Amino acid sequence: MMINDIVSPATGSSEENSTSGQPILLAGRGRTLPPGYIHLGVSKEIAPTLRDFGVEPDPVIREAGLDPHLFEDGTNVIPHMALGRLLTLSVARTNCPHFGLLVGQRATILSLGMVGRLMQHSETLGDAMRALVSNLSIQNRGAVPSLAISGDAAYFTFSVYQPEAESADQISDGSLAVAVNAIRALCGSHWNPMEILLPRITPADQEPFRRHFRAPVRFNQESAIIVFPARDLGLRIAGADPLLRAMLEERIRQLKGAQGSEFSDDIRRLLRMRLTSNHCSADDIAHLLTMHRRTLSRRLKGGGMGYRAITNEIRFEIARQLLQDTQVPLTQIAAALGYSEASAFTRAFRRWSGQTPTTWRAEGHPG
């Protein structure tokens, strides 16, 4: 199936951060994010979700290496890896395999901060989704969204790209749950997708997923995707204010332009979105960024890492997520990552991890 990209994520900006190992609290409003960090936003709902299970959240949050006071304000900033650890602990404490879904269910379009407000004042659903994809980097530098269209269907995809991220399946569940909430806020509570694709093992109880998404849910997929009618992109958003939209767009432009972006992180985000589409060669990425291939290589080497090394890092991360969180066959994972044969993927994975993918999956490494 050929899917044509409508919009790709815009590059984000970064700032210096501490390497002390202590939880970092950055002023949430008016600041851009360092790579690997995320505004709490949707994740602020983790604490009340834990309470719903009778679990006191503060000890769990501390065990994840975070200060519970951070969760008092959704604009506070935490490392994306700490979010993954917190979700892993939350699933264990509650014994709920769909904990991430419950977190996303509680969140609203306003949980997406300034980007959510821009979506509310976009002219059409298509404009709102493009705003989300283009600007999520001011709120989240651990995952990347994309929007594509093929025939009569639109595809909203959400992919975790931070290396060694735990609970990528929980993050994907919650992210699609809040994205559906956001679309329903814009189009009406009656809105439903055509189907949902999730990169996670089929749960014993599928009903919570069907109940929230109100659509067929397919598990053991390569990516987290909301599939919906492409015609819905033209739906107009009631109450959208053009003046507020212009003000929000200007503020977001200021945030993006406030500080220089970390180029290698921008490449990682682009690769995570495109690696499974066979449009991710160095020439492809250079063309996308309107620069010469040699300029791309020079800028990456200036940051201490070449294009091939970054590509392999992202391939390893995708492979880890699919091996850990799904039962997708090795041949399918190999093809998705651009390998002509499963044996070539096996050799590459052994170089990266010291183990074959079959052994790695059997040993049940933490996500």
Rank of each mutant, 00 (worst) to 15 (best):
I3Q: 08
G12M: 02
L25F: 08
I38Y: 09
G54Q: 05
V55R: 06
V55W: 07
R62I: 08
A64K: 04
G65T: 01
L66A: 00
P68Y: 01
E72G: 07
T75H: 03
P79F: 14
M81T: 11
G84S: 11
R85S: 15
L101F: 11
G104R: 05
T108K: 12
M114T: 14
S122Y: 10
A131W: 02
A131N: 09
L132K: 02
V133H: 00
S137V: 14
N140W: 09
G142V: 01
G151F: 00
T157Y: 03
P163H: 01
A165N: 15
G174H: 06
S175A: 08
L176F: 06
V180Q: 06
A185N: 14
L186H: 08
W191K: 06
I196M: 03
P199E: 03
P199S: 06
F209K: 13
F213E: 05
R214D: 02
P216N: 00
R231I: 05
D232Q: 13
L235S: 14
D241E: 01
A246R: 08
R251M: 06
Q254L: 13
L255P: 04
S264Y: 02
R269H: 03
L271I: 14
S277P: 12
S277H: 15
C280F: 11
L289V: 02
M291S: 04
L300G: 00
K301F: 00
G303R: 08
G304C: 00
F316P: 12
Q321T: 09
L323I: 03
Q324G: 14
Q324K: 13
D325F: 04
T326A: 00
T331C: 14
A344Y: 09
T346F: 03
F349M: 13
F349P: 10
W360A: 02
P366S: 13
P366G: 09
